[in-house]
Nucleic acid binder design. Structure first.
Lengths: 359, 359
DNA sequence: TTGTATGCGTTATCAA
DNA sequence: TTGATAACGCATACAA
């Protein structure tokens, strides 16, 4: 059996209270006794029982991280960022992967982190009002990435801004027929990011006087394969896009794959821009909107530390900047295109697109 | 304040012992009282305190996962596999990321999972004898991926076999000048996998009568960038390889990038084969040795469940098969090569390589 | 089937 | 500065 605080107290010839104080480095312990206690603990290779400690103190030394995927690049990067700063502060990470819908439901039905964590970090998970309330009712600090929960700490990027930059980049290159591969729009959980990005995409096009064409929006669900399918769909249009904005690099990769299989090249045939600056983006020479992924995790963890230390009274909201990284998959629109002989003109092209805009 | 078991007991007009039994679905509770208890708990929105429960029972409902990286594809896949089966059994995952060396040391100095987990899963982490003993001394079941710890459960692939298959694939294509980009050989922690693979590589070459040339082995450290550097090094040899085996797909990606920048193509100029079947491997049409990554995580978790249920007396050792996936980056060796005019011949080529074999 | 009583290993309050 | 002791919230052996 492992040694308990009582054993240490006996050996050091002090009370358990003193042992507890000495071991935790609290003041009001004489150096002499502290050393005696430390030695005794060492000799017995004593370690506190975290459960007993938690039970008595109410603190758990643990932060719950709730996320929709553990195995996707983005989330694993964020977790790494979180881990690096929490670990430095001796906080453990309890992982709640709510990818599966039933797991998600079960989670909110039973609230496993209840009394089990000192704080929560929620990554990009769309929550219903009641679900958010359940989390808030745990009465621990909560830091949220991407989405919003009233009263909680927040970190996010400016998705509208990032998207606008991406689409404007294409417009500035002379493209006017610009497709978008969007992600997880159909997910029943209702991720908000794709909605925001879709809106920004449409807004920028409108601002540039480019008519809206729903055919140019293809759903991709954030995976390589879905991105590939979406691209295939776009390229099979009567009047296919000359440039495509994919809402994630992964989908852009899929798009490039489809192009490759069709014998097309970026940017000669179609320009492609992604989002994230995934580790493979440089490899594939993909132009993209970079966001600091691990750094967002670090920020979330730092917010938790602030909340736990009580140094900040108000939950902060941090928006981290995105950055256009121009690589080889985007290029100037060709003046004359095979299937679309008319040269690009400013302003709408009503005759050509009346079918789609009439929808 | 949250309701306690006493509140529930009062409301249901039974003892706390009965509440405990009823809530955990133990037998020896009449249906009537069980329902009364359940209703009372529901009305008070009662949830057991995991710490109190752990303290009293000795069980924690938590499994510790110890790994060297959380943000690499391989490990995030394994964790996803582990999560899927543990979550289905209501076990939580406590993450111990020992990537940083100081974190590693600190971990073994303080043993944070002590009394905090019901079991441990160790992913590919090389441990010293004393470190292994520290883990074993926790007296919980341990399942290990990749490396070995006496008395523990094991899951691994046959690295020698996988490597042999890869190298033989290249030999069968007619290659005789075959380079290897190895991973993490220099890491002070001493990962064993690269050593095994390096040995297998040399063995297969020897069996094929191909002389050993240390210049053809370049260290890569498992990252894209390092793989790229290693490839650059190999291609700058006076007599560069016609085929390269990279110990991980990531490094193979880097190798392909280097080739691309040098204007070389696979397999026309150099054949490249990787290891893992990374999600991006298909995208880049990379020939590789596939291993079931998430599945290994599931197996580890299943072993833990077996150990915890006590159904198996002996720790099992599972070796999962690898599989050659032939894609577009490997091809037949060209009969005549620019820098190496002599056609490939079976058997050693003492004159040509005496310099290197003499080392 | 149910209840009683004790133990689990700390922390924190209060008094000395 | 130190000690005694009451929580903390539950599980479980034992008794009924």
């Amino acid at each position: 059996m492992a040694a308990s605080i009582i054993d240490v107290a006996r050996r050091a010839e002090v009370s358990t209270a003193t042992v507890s104080r000495a071991l935790r480095g609290l003041p009001n312990v004489s150096e002499a006794t502290r050393e005696r206690v430390l030695r005794a603990a060492e000799e017995l290779s004593y370690a506190v029982s975290p459960h007993a400690s938690s039970l008595a103190s109410g603190r758990t030394g643990t932060v719950g991280v709730i996320l929709p995927f553990v195995n996707r690049w983005f989330y694993s990067q964020v977790v790494a960022g979180i881990d690096s700063v929490l670990r430095a502060n001796d906080l453990d990470i309890l992982l709640y992967n709510l990818g599966d819908e039933r797991v998600h439901e079960r989670f909110f039905a039973r609230m496993p982190p209840r009394r089990r964590v000192d704080a929560l970090i929620v990554l990009n998970l769309p929550l219903s009002a009641t679900e958010s309330e359940s989390l808030v009712s745990l009465e621990v600090p909560i830091a949220v990435l991407g989405t919003r929960i009233p009263g909680c700490w927040h970190v996010s990027i400016d998705n509208a801004e990032g998207t606008s930059t991406a689409v404007r980049h294409l417009i500035n290159l002379g493209h006017r027929r610009i497709g978008m591969i969007s992600g997880a729009l159909g997910d029943p959980r209702g991720f908000t990011t794709p909605i925001v990005r879709q809106h920004a995409y449409r807004t920028v096009l409108a601002q540039a006087g480019i008519p809206y064409d729903p055919d140019l929006e293809a759903p991709g669900n954030l995976t390589i394969d879905e991105g590939a399918s979406a691209m295939a769909q776009l390229l099979s249009l009567p009047d296919p896009p000359t440039a495509v904005f994919a809402e994630s690099d992964q989908m852009a990769f899929g798009a490039l794959r489809t192009m490759g299989r069709m014998g097309l090249r970026a940017p000669d045939d179609v320009s492609v821009i992604g989002f994230d600056n995934h580790e493979t983006a440089e490899l594939l020479d993909l132009t993209t909107i970079a966001q600091p992924v691990a750094y967002q995790g670090e920020l979330l963890a730092q917010q938790i530390l602030d909340a736990l230390s009580g140094s900040s009274e108000e939950p902060a909201q941090v928006v981290v900047p995105t950055r256009l990284v121009v690589r080889g998959t985007t290029g100037a629109a060709r003046v004359a295109r095979p299937r679309h002989p008319s040269s690009p003109r400013p302003g709408p092209e009503p005759d050509q697109h009346s079918r789609t805009t009439a929808r």
